[in-house]
């Protein structure tokens, strides 16, 4: 897909995201909307997977560590054909394949059971070590939130990834600057993440996470760089695409009302 097509797909996914969360009456719109441009570029153009055989052992892995951004994952899984509209819209309902937080046990196309922050990079490292033992060139992608990297385990994994020189481990930090209670800088500023990861031995690139051109090019760069673990620090806007959710901490984990849904969809046409 070219960038214009990717942008249109991202807009479509944003509509799914707000509809899903509205229908469930709960969920996390802010971090889903900040992440979706990157997910769209990855799923539409990069990840190798098999719709007929979701457990194909040599597929690329996408580890969504910020599991509360599940609507973003479900929206793109729906668009690429893993889950139906009906399943997508059953998000958070009893028995749904679309659990509140992404869960590999419940959903085809999901490679990790998230919900507890700070664990995804470690899991991705395990996937990357296994791939190397198998002499496989499958790529492992991990997305974390910026609030999430306050967890110590993230840095344990960052240190270990460099120590074990896993070149096919690709990290994306969704740097949307807002976490559950407030802005990251208020709760526990994580500072210059690029500098910190560089000092841990990672190759790092900073981008505008909503510029499809920059996103696509960074994904290529990361995928081609197999000499060491790579990180893309994607500067994003929480709630991107819906004006009243943008940069608004109250929409970290709140469903839109009927009226807010109407306004959201109007903006996303």
């Amino acid at each position: 897909m070219d960038n214009v097509q990717l942008e249109e797909l991202a807009r479509q996914c944003r509509r799914h995201i707000v509809r899903m969360i509205h229908s469930a009456g709960a969920g996390h719109p802010g971090g889903s909307l900040s992440a979706i441009d990157i997910l769209v570029a990855l799923y539409a153009n990069k990840l190798r997977f098999d719709l007929e055989n979701p457990d194909w052992y040599d597929r690329d892995r996408f580890v969504m560590s910020k599991g509360h951004a599940s609507p973003a994952v479900y929206s793109i899984l729906h668009e690429v054909g893993f889950i139906s509209e009906e399943d997508m819209m059953s998000f958070r309902k009893m028995g749904s394949v679309c659990q509140g937080h992404v869960d590999m046990k419940w959903t085809d196309g999901v490679d990790f059971s998230a919900g507890s922050l700070g664990m995804g990079l470690s899991f991705g490292l395990g996937c990357a070590l296994a791939a190397r033992m198998d002499s496989s060139n499958r790529d492992i992608w991990v997305m974390v939130g910026d609030g999430e990297i306050q967890e110590g385990q993230f840095w344990e994994a960052a240190m270990a990834a460099d120590f074990h020189s896993v070149g096919r481990l690709n990290l994306i930090v969704d740097r949307n600057r807002i976490q559950n209670d407030d802005f990251v800088e208020v709760q526990m500023e994580v500072g210059d993440v690029a500098k910190k990861l560089s000092s841990f031995g990672w190759d790092v690139k900073e981008i505008d996470g909503h510029s499809m051109e920059e996103v696509v090019s960074a994904i290529e760069w990361s995928s081609n760089n197999i000499g060491s673990p790579t990180a893309i620090i994607a500067h994003t806007t929480k709630g991107k695409g819906v004006s009243f959710m943008e940069n608004n901490p109250s929409f970290h984990g709140k469903a839109p009302t009927d009226e807010e849904l109407r306004m959201s969809l109007e903006e996303l046409t």
């Binding site: 580890v63 590999m104 470690s122 899991f123 490292l125 395990g126 996937c127 070590l129 296994a130 994994a157």
Partner: peptide, 8 residues
């Protein structure tokens, strides 16, 4: 979690 990723 590294163990878990390897198991997966």
């Amino acid at each position: 979690l590294v163990a878990s990723g390897m198991a997966s």
